[in-house]
């Protein structure tokens, strides 16, 4: 479970990216966060695994108080939370398998990592994760030789290899074309449903959000302006989130048609 209470984040430059947020996300939920760029979507997601510290308020993740964690407590938390990135964040020069094995680092002793020796169990887990996103045949291919969609699937596999209870996805389809975006979203949805993992996704496109989300959270200027099921998220709600009416730029289907 993830619970924000009265949580705020102000960056050193003075930008307030999260304002008095109260939010609870139950285990196994598939939540999509929408909002303009700069509305605080990334901040919210990165607060969950402590990449962005709160400036005030409380945040509980899996019974851990994120604001008071020490270094090793933070690493324990992060090992339970997988993360997927807009830019994939793969090491281009190494193989797909080695990238996925990065998800096992928390469990591996440092000396093994230094020598590049992963345990059989870790390799098996990585193989399973790769299999789940159906890219296991590329295990020994260099990450730089994959297409964008394939790379994001490797990103998902890396997160899965952590055996996480929560997966955070920060704009996972922003660098992908529409068909590939749907593939990636379907994998995320499947993972949530079949493995019971809580999935939190930042999205820009509203139609993608309503198509996949159990629950949509709207952010505007760091504050929560909408929280409800995808079906309730209509044009009026949209206006309250974006502060303007829907345009072709905001839906993937219409943008693709342009």
């Amino acid at each position: 479970m993830i619970r924000f209470s009265n949580a705020s984040v102000t960056y050193p430059g003075g930008v307030q990216a999260m304002r008095d947020l109260d939010l609870t996300i139950e285990p196994g939920e598939f939540v999509v966060i929408v909002g303009l760029s700069g509305a605080g979507k990334s901040t919210l997601i990165r607060a969950v695994n402590g990449l962005v510290p709160l400036t005030s308020g409380q945040l509980q993740v899996n019974e851990r108080d994120v604001t008071t964690l020490n270094r090793s407590g933070m690493r324990d938390l992060r090992s339970e939370v997988g993360m997927i990135f807009q830019g994939f964040n793969l090491v281009d020069r190494t193989t797909v398998l080695k990238n996925v094995l990065m998800g096992r680092l928390h469990e591996a002793p440092t000396w093994r990592t230094l020598l590049g020796l992963y345990s059989k169990a870790d390799v098996h887990l990585a193989a399973q994760a790769l299999d789940r996103v159906e890219i296991i045949d590329k295990a020994y291919v260099r990450a730089s030789n994959l297409s964008g969609g394939q790379r994001q699937r490797v990103g998902i596999a890396r997160a899965l290899a952590q055996e996480p209870s929560i997966i955070l996805a920060d704009e996972p389809v922003a660098s992908l074309d529409p068909p590939t975006s749907h593939v990636v979203m379907r994998y995320l949805q499947q993972i949530g449903r079949e493995l019971g993992i809580t999935v939190i996704v930042n999205l820009h496109f509203l139609d993608l959000a309503t198509a996949y989300a159990d629950r949509i959270i709207g952010l505007r200027d760091g504050a929560l302006v909408f929280d409800g099921p995808g079906s309730e998220c209509d044009a009026d709600v949209f206006e309250s989130i974006y502060g303007r009416s829907l345009t072709a730029d905001d839906t993937m289907a219409k943008q693709a048609a342009l």
Partner: peptide, 21 residues
């Protein structure tokens, strides 16, 4: 993972052992 792992919420072993190339 070696003997019929207990099914956890995050268990990945939904399928049989995947074979790496």
């Amino acid at each position: 993972l070696s003997r019929g792992a207990p099914v956890r919420a995050t268990d990945l072993s939904a399928k049989d052992w995947p074979q790496l190339p």
